[in-house]
Design a protein around this nucleic acid. Structure first.
Length: 514
RNA sequence: CGGGGUGUAGCUCAGCUUGGUAGAGCGCGUCGUUCGGGACGACGAGGUCGCAGGUUCGAAUCCUGUCACCCCGACCA
């Protein structure tokens, strides 16, 4: 095969959606399965998810939460209780109606009509209903509160159009569910977990996010308030990376979560829920990936360092392997982010070029090649994933060992800064309707293949749902969130809505979204 | 559910209009020459052409039915 300029074809510029698919394939993260809309998460993709899980789980534990597990199936009658919740999820539910198969007339298997369930079960699209039903039995006294619970599980939402990691019919996530004695405590919890997500995104995924509440039309079905973190992908579209919901007393009412307070009065409780999903892996791809494949933030990379012994030219390959072994041991004895550096020795029997590129495409932060020459000079040949694949050089072994941690830290910081700069470049404060429409309109001739355009727009907004609807219809642009204090500059002064001239307390964030 | 398209080797696809013994590239295996940035050669393994009917001496190819998937719209973490 002839040498290509980039490892991934097409490039982001040429065809962004196709680039995304190719990166996932090249990095061996996941593949489509025989089941429509469901993906097979392969070991490299799953290892990233495990690192996310471990980190988030620590953060949940540190904020007082415990894990539990609730059933995959939810009785239809539970699900029916909260009207808005039903309206939001009924259109995309998988339903179990039978529990036995029998041979059919055409030789295949069919559901046994005799084995029809009295009450259909739905496969959970989210677990508020079944968890709050349990909570209603667990909560009797103010002494039982708060309940701070989380579960790691899979859920099913029967999506029409799917894309690996971003939108699949089945996906993995965590869902936190809490019950509180007072409104204030529940709101505080909602904000606490919102903040946990933002910190996780920025400090671990190196994905800068904008925090804020959703408008009422974008809220979680059944919530009083939904708080989101929104990030900008490299095609300048917004991705909702995590949400935290203040559910008020909506679920407490329909599931009858009541407790006796200190005065012996019977009081309704307040609940929250919050979730983050495997979509985050898609966010990593689209935030940091380049035309050579995935770029992983070191804190989440399954391997921090890959060591490739180059032995074919040596009289003494065993010595090189041994030299690599001691290098690996030394690295593993070094702590990064509170844990030993994760090192992988790649001794697969394959050609050097293929081997090296496979790690470039997988996004490993540091690559080390060691051949006879390096060993003789007591040095290593190092390449960093945040630099060009060709930008690599020999460094003395001792120097590399001394600097390994700071290089990982530097890569982690650098990709976050790069993402922040990208977002800043394509975020615009707009006060004029025409300019807004122009900003979000592609200039390319072929409407099937619009060029990468638009970004984040900050405008005033009167609060009108009509305006929201019209803009969504015209441009497929929506309000991603109402940025909170301190999230963006020039955002929190009152002004005039450029769409209907109404008064506006602050600017809101508009974008096309996933 | 509307509009468009595709089912042939592990993968990507050609062959179909005009019926006549199943093809290519990549990948895979063995051997050789190579190899400090995506090698090359030789040989080899691998397919009841989505499924069911029909037409025909003969069907991947024509006809009918059916199933699945993909793309574009409405819905979504």
């Amino acid at each position: 095969m002839s040498k290509q300029k980039t490892a991934i074809s097409p490039t982001r510029e040429e065809n962004y959606p196709e680039w995304y698919q190719q990166v996932i394939k090249a990095a061996d993260l996941a593949e489509a399965s025989a089941v429509r809309g469901c993906m097979i998460i392969k070991p490299w993709g799953y290892a990233i998810w495990e690192n996310m899980q471990r980190q988030l789980d620590d953060m949940f534990k540190a904020t007082g939460h415990t894990n539990a597990y609730f059933p995959l199936f939810i009785p239809l009658s539970y699900f029916e209780r909260e009207a808005e919740h039903v309206e939001g999820f009924a259109k995309e539910c998988a339903i179990v109606t039978h529990y036995r198969l029998i041979p059919g007339p055409d030789g295949g298997l069919i559901p046994d009509p005799e084995a029809k369930l009295d009450e259909p079960l739905i496969v959970r699209p989210t677990s508020e209903t079944i968890i709050n039903e349990a909570f209603s039995r667990w909560v009797q006294s103010y002494r039982d509160l708060p309940i701070l619970m989380n579960q790691w599980c899979n859920i099913v939402r029967w999506e029409m159009r799917t894309r690996l990691f971003l939108r699949t019919s089945e996906f993995l996530w965590q869902e936190g569910h809490t019950v509180h004695a007072t409104k204030e405590e529940a709101i505080e919890e909602t904000h606490r977990m919102h903040e946990v997500y933002a910190r996780f995104a920025e400090d671990f995924c190196a994905i800068p996010v904008i925090k804020g509440p959703k408008t009422s039309s974008e809220r979680f079905p059944g919530a009083e308030d939904t708080y989101t973190i929104e990030s900008m992908m490299q095609d300048r579209k917004a991705l909702q990376a995590g949400t935290s919901h203040f559910l008020g007393q909506n679920f407490a009412k329909v599931f009858n979560i009541e407790y006796s307070d200190a005065d012996g009065k019977l009081v309704k409780a307040w609940t929250t829920s919050w979730g983050m999903t495997t979509r985050m892996i898609g966010a990593l791809v689209m935030t940091h990936g380049d035309d050579d494949g995935l770029v992983l933030p070191p804190k989440l990379a399954p391997h921090h360092v890959v060591i490739i012994p180059i032995t074919f030219k040596s009289d003494n390959p065993e010595a090189i392997v041994e030299y690599c072994n001691t290098l690996r041991d030394a690295l593993q004895g070094t702590m990064y982010d509170g844990k030993p550096i994760r090192v992988h020795m790649d001794q697969r029997d394959m050609r050097g070029g293929d081997k090296i590129w496979s790690w470039v495409k997988k996004g490993v932060p540091i690559r080390i090649e060691v051949g006879q020459r390096d060993m003789d000079a007591d040095s290593v040949f190092m390449a960093r994933r945040d630099k060009s694949p060709k930008d690599k050089a020999g460094v003395p072994r001792a120097e590399f060992l001394a600097n390994a941690v700071s290089i990982l830290e530097e890569i982690q910081n650098k990709i976050l800064e790069k993402a922040k700069a990208f977002r800043a470049e394509y975020t615009r404060v707009i006060d004029d309707k025409e300019e807004f429409y122009d900003f979000f309109t592609a200039k390319s001739k072929d409407p099937q293949r619009p060029e990468i355009h638009g970004g984040f727009a900050l405008t005033h907004w009167s609060g009108s749902e009509e305006v929201e609807k019209q803009i969504n219809k015209d441009l497929s642009v929506s309000i991603r969130c109402i940025p909170m204090e301190g999230q963006m500059d020039n955002c929190h002064e009152p002004g005039v809505c450029p769409f209907d001239g109404g008064e506006s307390p602050q600017r809101v964030l508009w974008a096309k979204s996933y």
